[in-house]
Write a protein that binds this DNA or RNA. Structure first.
Length: 456
RNA sequence: GUGAAUGUAGCUCAGUUGGUUAGAGCACCAGAUUGUGGUUCUGGGGGUCGUGGGUUCGAACCCCAUCUUUCACCCCA
């Protein structure tokens, strides 16, 4: 008999972990709801045609594909099989795949249900996604995303509200040391004009995104290798290395972008977004304009966000941005702009765990265990149990006739704070023994008194 | 996809230059204690040393392959 194992990069979530994960899901879901977002769920699997081509070449390779049912090799072109090129064969034997993120299925949903959706449409979605990546710290093959997106409006109020939601979620989780980085694709495009990127924008963005991680020297090296001129890079790094307040950075950018229409647009969008924060009675605490911030997903076109928890060795815990043409990829004639945010709950979990920030209460189970000594008191206990539950008290009974010691040990292990002890004495008098396992206190009370004592 | 490390009891780990029957702590079970848990004491169960092959008189230890987990790169939450 082989020992069972889990597929690489997947995990079970036991009761303790689940209690904590629920706490995260609930916290995030409540914030989304408060900002007017309503829940949506979509299938774990999508047609492969829905998924491919949306995440760039790299993303396509990370898609989990699902083998067709039945004799899936039967009709495959023999020449393709003989070529032994799995890519050629893949499209013929797999027409479904596991979702890679929640944004693309959302866009698909919007296009399919356009007739009954009131714009702007705000939805949130908390579901697992799958990536055929190689697992490492903070990276799993199955993980949950908590997304909130709004489509059908260009208003930058949405961007400002995303900033507010991020701030509120982390505040509620008592994760106070974080940085919400914000940038704009048009700012990056402006930079590309300055260095004459001409077609190599993607290389440029990927390279400068790593600035704070590997330093200016390495980034320069990388860019020169990609064919950028060393001279043009000086102007670039002068901008990228700007320190100071958000206002100072944005002013410098407007200065540098006097010749760049697209650059100006990026700066004004960022200014407007930050301006809305004031009207919403919020401030720029934790918010940092981060000029090198690029983010990988190729579909972003406007503001982009990323959240980093400070003093923890962990990639970004949240990210998002505005996309202009996602629904166009599904044949929508109308141009629907959208903006969204995604919280990576598995990473947030790891951060909270590392920083010891989970509230203690997330561990509790039943409030009380009914213990007994013989057949008669067990039977009596069942009636007691039913009364406790009618009163809304989470309770359980030890289901076997067992030594009292064993029953209390069970309560102890499950961190059940109270036991009710029922023996012949209690059955006769109706005065049950209630014991507080934490303090050791014990007293005789009627069931009504106990219910009153245990009702919060 | 590229590169590296790791794997011994349920968990954390010892295990000498290759040499008798592979150990400890914690956890688990039982008893001390037949109506009182957490503490203590006593005893007990539990290992194909990741898997498969090879070298050797002899392998947990050396070699090869494979899988797992972890870390870095690429990319990403």
């Amino acid at each position: 008999m082989e020992k069972p194992t889990l597929p690489k990069g997947t995990r079970d979530f036991g009761p303790l972990v689940m209690a904590r994960r629920q706490y995260l899901f609930n916290t995030i879901g409540q914030v989304f709801h408060k900002f007017g977002f309503l829940p949506l769920q979509t299938p774990a699997m999508e047609n492969l045609s829905t998924l491919t081509g949306k995440y760039g070449e790299e993303g396509d390779q990370l898609l989990f594909k699902i083998l067709n049912s039945g004799d899936y090799l039967k009709d495959v072109d023999l020449s393709k099989l003989e070529a032994r090129n799995s890519r050629l064969v893949a499209s013929e034997i797999a027409e479904k795949g596991l979702r890679y993120d929640l944004t693309v299925p959302f866009a698909r949903y919007v296009v399919m249900n356009r007739h009954e959706i009131a714009l702007p449409f705000k939805r949130y979605q908390i579901q697992p996604v799958w990536r055929a990546d190689r697992p490492q710290k903070g990276r799993y093959r199955e993980f949950y995303q908590c997304d909130a997106d709004v489509v059908g409006t260009d208003s930058l109020i949405c961007e400002a509200e995303i900033v507010l939601m991020i701030k509120e979620v982390f505040q509620k989780l008592r994760l106070n040391d974080f940085t919400l980085k914000i940038n704009h694709r048009s700012v990056l495009d402006g930079l590309a004009e300055i260095v004459n990127a001409g077609g190599k924008e993607a290389d440029l963005y990927v390279a400068i995104d790593k600035l704070d991680k590997i330093g200016e020297e390495k980034v320069r090296e990388g860019l020169i290798q990609k064919g950028f001129e060393s001279k043009s890079l000086d102007a670039l790094f002068e901008i990228l290395n700007t320190k100071g307040s958000n206002e100072q950075k944005l002013n410098l950018l407007s200065n540098k972008f006097q010749q760049s229409e697209v650059g100006k647009k990026g700066v004004s969008d960022l200014k407007e977004t930050l301006g809305y924060l004031k009207f919403l009675n919020a401030n720029e605490q934790h918010v940092e304009v981060d000029i090198p911030l690029a983010r990988g997903l190729s579909y972003y076109t406007g503001c982009i966000f990323e959240v980093k928890v400070n003093n923890v060795q962990m990639g970004s815990v949240s990210g998002g941005g505005r996309y202009d043409n996602l629904t166009q990829a599904f044949g929508s004639k109308e141009k629907l702009s959208g903006v969204g945010i995604s919280f990576g709950i598995d990473r947030i979990y790891d951060c909270l765990d590392e920083l010891n920030l989970f509230p203690k209460e997330t561990a509790t189970s039943s409030k009380v265990l009914v213990c007994h000594f013989d057949e008669a008191s067990l039977q009596y206990g069942l009636n007691t149990l039913s009364q406790l539950r009618s009163a809304g008290i989470a309770s359980e009974i030890y289901p076997d006739l067992a030594k009292f010691k064993k029953q209390v040990e069970y309560a102890d292990k499950k961190k059940i704070p109270f036991v009710i002890i029922i023996g012949p004495e209690e059955v006769a008098s109706g005065q049950l023994s209630l014991k507080n396992l934490e303090s050791g206190e014990q007293s005789k009370q009627t069931i009504q008194q106990i219910i009153q004592a245990l009702t919060p």
